[in-house]
Amino acid sequence: MIALLLRDLRLATRAGGGFGLGVAFFLILSALVPFGVGPDRATLAPVAPGILWVGALLACLLSLDRLFALDHEDGSLDLLATAPLPLEGTVAIKALAHWITTGLPLVLAAPLFGVLLQLPGQAMPWLVVSLAVGTPALSMLGAFGAALTVGLRRGGLLLSLLVLPLYIPTLIFGAEITRRGAEGQATATPLLFLAGITLGVLALIPWAAAAALRVNLR
């Protein structure tokens, strides 16, 4: 399992792996929004939590279609399916690798983009916490979507269509935590909900994703 994780991380960081693309995309998004809505602190600050969360969502989507598709094309997926590793474990590990290469950089870089979008200082810790708690669920749900569409030639758009509705609860609670943090309100309730969703997703989705992969392998 460690070997698979290390391989995925190494592949992501080598040439053409696309490591850091998510953060770059996030940066561009954060830079574009003020051009669209205007530079005023008064207009930017209230929408910043939502923009940052939607940005994280979209950045997460970027590399999803490659999660299983590359392994499917070169036959690695067949070999992984015959390996002693349960397919559920393979899915979980690949989702973890996706999170480390996409979600984690977003979590770490988010305060920077919060500054760009005039997010109040007191909301920064909550932004980081909400992203840290929420993004693992995004990666795992993305792995489910990628498993559903792995055999399709033009699966990218369909993947977004399937995965984005699944992101709604995470987005609602994640943005709510940040918004409440910005307004100095209590954040415990949405944080607990968000953590509950993430834990539930991490516990159950690997089975659904592995089932979808098995269907696509035969």
Binding site: L11, D74, S76, L79
Partner: peptide, 23 residues
């Protein structure tokens, strides 16, 4: 089968080492 399960970015020995570890 027809596809060898090789990653172009890894060297030959790295590819083998990975499958050795997995199996």
């Amino acid at each position: 089968a027809h596809a060898d399960g090789l990653k172009p970015a890894l060297t030959a020995s790295e590819n083998l080492a990975f499958w050795a570890q997995v199996f």
